[in-house]
């Protein structure tokens, strides 16, 4: 069975429109102008990841900004965001403080990046 995906390579401003196809475990990338596009395309097709940046509420009613310490699977973004709605940053939390360790088993931590 062949599976395919269309996207844009983001590795340089050319932004080549690429098509990634998998046939019986073999990948082929079309539309890319260079090798980097092939590597990017296969990565996006097999295991797309994103760094999530968002807000959590603080004890005094304000907000603090947070990020995942490393990119997490793209299809887990909204599960992670849901989890963030349930936590509150302690008073005087500082940049670099870890609020959640190994969030949803991704191996990535929720880290404070700023706030008031």
């Amino acid at each position: 069975m062949a599976k395919a995906m269309e996207t844009i390579c983001i590795m340089c401003p050319m932004g080549c429109p690429i098509t990634v196809t998998e046939t019986d475990g073999v990948f082929s990338v079309k539309g890319n102008s260079c090798k980097r596009g092939e590597v990017y395309g296969i990565g996006e097709f097999t295991a797309p990841v994103r760094t999530v940046t968002a807000l959590v509420r603080t004890k005094n009613g304000g907000v603090a900004s947070v990020k995942t310490s490393s990119p997490v699977p793209k299809d887990m973004i909204f599960d992670i965001l849901d989890g963030l709605k349930k936590i509150t940053a302690p008073k005087n939390s500082r940049i670099g403080d870890v609020l959640v360790k190994n969030v949803l088993g991704t191996g990535s931590d929720i880290v404070v990046t700023g706030g008031n």
């Binding site: 760094t51 940046t53 968002a54 900004s65 990020k67 940049i95 700023g114 706030g115």
Partner: peptide, 25 residues
Amino acid sequence: LNQCIHNGFGLHYFKEELTGPEYAA
């Protein structure tokens, strides 16, 4: 920068990807 909480800052200057508030701090 204090309001740009997304990442993508500092790749050239600090050689690591930071959020806006982290770069500013």
